[in-house]
Amino acid sequence: MLKGIALSVFIALAIPASAATWRDELPQAKALGSGDLTWFRLRIYTAKLWSENPQFSLNSPFALELTYHRSISRTQFVETSIDEIKRIFGQQYSAEQLKRWEGEMYRAFTNVNEGDQLVGVFLPNQGCRFYNRNQLLADIRDPEFAKAFFAIWFDERTKDSGLRDQLLGRAK
């Protein structure tokens, strides 16, 4: 019996102190803004930014919720993310670092279908966690990756500044 208790304690300590859902990470989060990503008039996903801080800041945790209106393969999602990081940051990240991040994203993401939801939680100076509606998909403890990944939506050089403004609650 003592052996079983010790094993339970070990397992509890070995598992990251992460939540079952993203809402457990940010229980007081409120939506700051939302908008749709469209491509040639096709709605790809609806994005919603959540934060416990009333003003968006890369110094505070936040969650980016994406609800898909189209099917997208994991490969397409990962390749597009890497391409966007390269476009935004140029040569700032080495090929080796980008390859490592690509592997992390392949581990974190799955194919998505219409109605599926992915939520990324940004944790300053720690990294990020990714969830679907039911569970934690990945805990990536790389603060630089987290900054680069979420820059796809929140950097001033994002491809869709209109969506960025909507997420930040700045759209008119």
Rank of each mutant, 00 (worst) to 15 (best):
S60Y: 13
S81C: 03
T110N: 14
G115F: 06
E25L: 08
I44H: 05
V119Y: 03
N132Q: 12
T21C: 15
S81N: 11
D116T: 10
R87N: 11
F77M: 15
P61E: 03
Q126S: 15
E114P: 15
L13I: 08
R107N: 10
P16T: 13
T80W: 13
L49C: 00
I88V: 04
V9F: 09
T38I: 03
L123C: 09
F150G: 00
F77D: 11
A151Q: 07
A146P: 03
R133I: 04
E156H: 08
K3M: 13
A148E: 06
T110W: 10
R70T: 14
Q97P: 00
Q126A: 15
K3D: 08
N125C: 09
K159I: 07
D83R: 13
N134E: 14
T38H: 03
G127N: 05
E65K: 03
G33S: 05
R164V: 03
K159A: 14
R141V: 05
Y68S: 05
L42C: 13
Q166R: 08
D36K: 06
I15R: 11
N113R: 15
D160E: 08
E144H: 10
G162K: 10
S73H: 10
A6I: 12
H69M: 06
C128D: 11
F10R: 06
K147N: 10
A31P: 12
A19N: 12
V121N: 02
P54Q: 01
F40D: 14
R70Y: 05
W50P: 00
E25C: 11
F150Q: 02
A6C: 12
I11G: 02
Q91I: 13
G103Q: 04
T46E: 05
S51W: 00
G115L: 06
Q76F: 10
R164D: 00
Q76E: 10
V78R: 03
Y45P: 02
G90E: 06
N111K: 09
G115S: 09
E84F: 09
S81R: 03
V119W: 01
L136R: 07
L64N: 02
A31H: 07
A20K: 13
T46A: 03
E156S: 15
T110I: 15
E156A: 15
S71F: 08
W50V: 00
D83I: 11
K86A: 14
L66I: 06
R74S: 04
W22V: 05
V9T: 03
V121Q: 03
N53E: 02
T75R: 12
I5G: 11
A12F: 10
R74H: 12
S94H: 07
Y68C: 12
T67E: 08
R43H: 09
Q92A: 07
G120Y: 07
A146V: 02
V78I: 01
L26M: 06
Q97F: 04
A17E: 14
F10P: 09
H69S: 08
D142W: 02
S73V: 07
I5M: 15
F109L: 11
W153N: 04
E79K: 13
A17W: 07
E96G: 07
M1E: 14
A95N: 14
L13M: 11
K99V: 01
Q28Y: 04
A63S: 06
L137V: 11
G127F: 06
R43V: 12
G103V: 01
S8M: 14
T21M: 09
D116R: 07
T46V: 05
I11L: 14
